[in-house]
Amino acid sequence: NITNLCPFDEVFNATRFASVYAWNRKRISNCVADYSVLYNFAPFFAFKCYGVSPTKLNDLCFTNVYADSFVIRGNEVSQIAPGQTGNIADYNYKLPDDFTGCVIAWNSNKLDSKVGGNYNYLYRLFRKSNLKPFERDISTEIYQAGNKPCNGVAGFNCYFPLRSYGFRPTYGVGHQPYRVVVLSFELLHAPATVCGPKKST
């Protein structure tokens, strides 16, 4: 009989979020998941679920829940969905086509923008091939755009693969920082350890 609540607040209220190319993952297990707390949290810009209804989450049990978190621009949030393409979905964070879970995003301009620009948040701009679902690539190898080998030196046709967002408070909404948490639900042939409040007695 599990009684402790799942530590969703640790994920959602973290002081610093990860850059999207180096997205953070927390495994959540052996706890009671009260999703209504999240669902009623006012400032969400997006709360979209795939393969599961957000209002039914509290009735369900899962083997594991993974909480992935990172920061992207407002106009990139739409790429955090199954079957998407674009710089983020291709080179930074890719969801599987059969994704079961929820994508939760909110504007973090007050936290993550600075006058003069916040350059701490990076994304991958160049990559030889697209990421596989949930693949994480933190390499900083110089990207070779031409035929000539770069030998690890940036220059003509040789690019550092990461780019900084440089968030400023005055940017338009599409270019403002958004914090994103992706909850993915794993249902294995194993005992369920993460259940909603109704199922955990």
Rank of each mutant, 00 (worst) to 15 (best):
N130H: 14
Y66E: 05
V11H: 03
A81G: 07
F167T: 05
F47S: 04
F45N: 14
K110Y: 08
V71G: 01
T15G: 05
T170A: 12
G152S: 11
Q176D: 06
K110M: 09
Y91H: 08
W106D: 00
P161T: 07
V115L: 12
R168H: 14
V77G: 02
V71N: 01
F160I: 12
R168C: 08
N4M: 08
N147H: 13
K114S: 12
V103Q: 00
V11Q: 03
N109C: 08
K110E: 15
F156C: 11
V182G: 00
R168Q: 15
N64C: 11
P197R: 14
I88E: 00
H189G: 15
G146I: 05
Q84K: 11
R25P: 02
N4G: 11
T55C: 08
Y123R: 14
Y50E: 02
R73Y: 06
Q84V: 09
D90N: 11
F8L: 12
A42K: 11
I28D: 01
G74V: 03
F160A: 15
D59M: 07
G166K: 14
D112V: 00
F17I: 03
L188E: 15
A190K: 14
F99Q: 00
N40H: 12
A154D: 15
Q79N: 04
C49H: 00
R25S: 03
I2F: 12
R25K: 03
Y171S: 15
N13W: 00
A33R: 05
G152D: 13
Y66K: 06
G155N: 12
C61F: 06
S69I: 01
Y91M: 07
Y165G: 04
F160P: 14
E186Y: 06
A190T: 13
S78Q: 10
Y143A: 09
N30H: 09
R73S: 13
K199A: 15
A67M: 13
P43E: 08
K56Y: 06
A67V: 10
S53Y: 07
N87K: 11
C49I: 00
D97G: 07
S139F: 03
K148Q: 13
T15E: 11
L187M: 14
Y143P: 07
C31S: 06
P82T: 02
D9P: 07
V52L: 09
S53G: 07
D98P: 06
N58S: 10
N92L: 02
P177E: 04
N64P: 08
N4R: 13
K110L: 09
F44S: 11
R16C: 08
R179G: 02
Y35W: 15
V103W: 00
G51Q: 07
F44E: 13
R16P: 04
R127F: 02
K132Q: 11
Y50G: 01
Y21L: 03
P96A: 06
P161E: 04
L111G: 07
Y165S: 04
N13Y: 01
Q79Y: 01
P96N: 05
V115R: 13
Q176H: 05
G51C: 01
E76N: 05
P43D: 10
R136L: 06
R16F: 09
R136M: 06
N30D: 10
N120P: 11
F17P: 05
E135F: 03
T100E: 05
P43L: 05
P43R: 07
G172L: 10
V52I: 12
T63S: 12
A154K: 15
S19I: 00
R163I: 09
S19R: 01
A154C: 09
R124C: 03
Y66M: 07
V65Y: 04
D98Q: 08
V173E: 15
D59G: 09
L188H: 13
T201M: 14
G152C: 07
N147E: 15
N40L: 07
W23F: 10
A89M: 02
K132I: 08
